[in-house]
Computed example of a mutant assay.
Amino acid sequence: MNLFGKPYLRSVSVDPRADIDLDTYPFTIPAVRDMGVIDMHPDVTFFVGENGAGKSTVLEAIAVALGLPAEGGPRSVHRPQQEVSPLERHLKLVKGARQSRHAWFLRAESMFNVFSYMDEVGGERRNGGGLHRRSHGEAFAELLQNFQPGGLYLLDEPEAALSPNRQLGALCIIDELVKKDAQFIIATHSPILLAYPRAAILSFDDTGITPVAYQDTEHYATTRDFLNHYPRRLQQLFDDE
Rank of each mutant, 00 (worst) to 15 (best):
M111L: 15
M111W: 01
M111K: 02
M111V: 06
M111H: 04
F112Q: 07
F112Y: 07
F112I: 00
F112S: 09
F112V: 03
N113D: 14
N113R: 13
V114Y: 08
V114Q: 03
F115N: 13
F115Y: 15
F115Q: 12
F115G: 11
F115E: 13
S116Q: 15
S116R: 14
Y117V: 09
Y117M: 07
Y117C: 06
Y117Q: 08
Y117I: 08
Y117S: 10
M118Q: 13
M118V: 14
M118E: 14
D119A: 07
D119Q: 09
D119W: 04
D119L: 07
E120A: 11
E120N: 04
E120W: 02
V121A: 04
V121F: 06
V121M: 04
G122A: 03
G122N: 13
G122S: 11
G122P: 02
G122W: 01
G123S: 12
G123M: 08
E124N: 01
E124P: 00
E124M: 13
E124T: 11
E124R: 14
E124K: 13
R125N: 07
R125P: 00
R126K: 10
R126M: 02
R126L: 03
R126Q: 05
R126Y: 06
R126A: 08
N127W: 15
N127K: 02
N127E: 10
N127Y: 13
N127S: 03
G128P: 12
G128R: 04
G128Y: 07
G128K: 02
G129F: 08
G129W: 04
G129E: 10
G129A: 10
G129H: 05
G129C: 11
G129I: 02
G129L: 08
G130I: 08
G130D: 12
G130S: 13
G130H: 11
G130E: 13
G130A: 12
G130V: 10
L131Y: 15
L131V: 05
L131R: 09
L131K: 01
H132D: 09
H132T: 06
H132S: 11
R133V: 00
R133L: 06
R133K: 10
R133T: 09
R133Y: 05
R133A: 07
R133Q: 09
R134D: 07
R134E: 09
R134G: 00
S135F: 08
S135D: 10
S135Q: 05
S135M: 05
H136P: 00
H136T: 08
H136I: 01
H136W: 05
H136C: 00
H136G: 02
G137E: 07
G137D: 06
G137T: 02
G137K: 01
G137H: 04
G137Q: 04
G137W: 03
E138D: 11
E138S: 13
E138H: 06
A139T: 06
A139Y: 01
A139G: 11
A139R: 01
F140I: 01
F140D: 00
F140R: 02
A141M: 15
A141G: 12
E142W: 12
E142V: 02
E142C: 00
E142G: 02
E142N: 03
E142L: 12
L143S: 05
L144R: 10
L144H: 08
L144D: 11
L144F: 15
L144P: 10
L144T: 09
L144E: 11
Q145E: 14
Q145G: 14
Q145S: 14
Q145D: 14
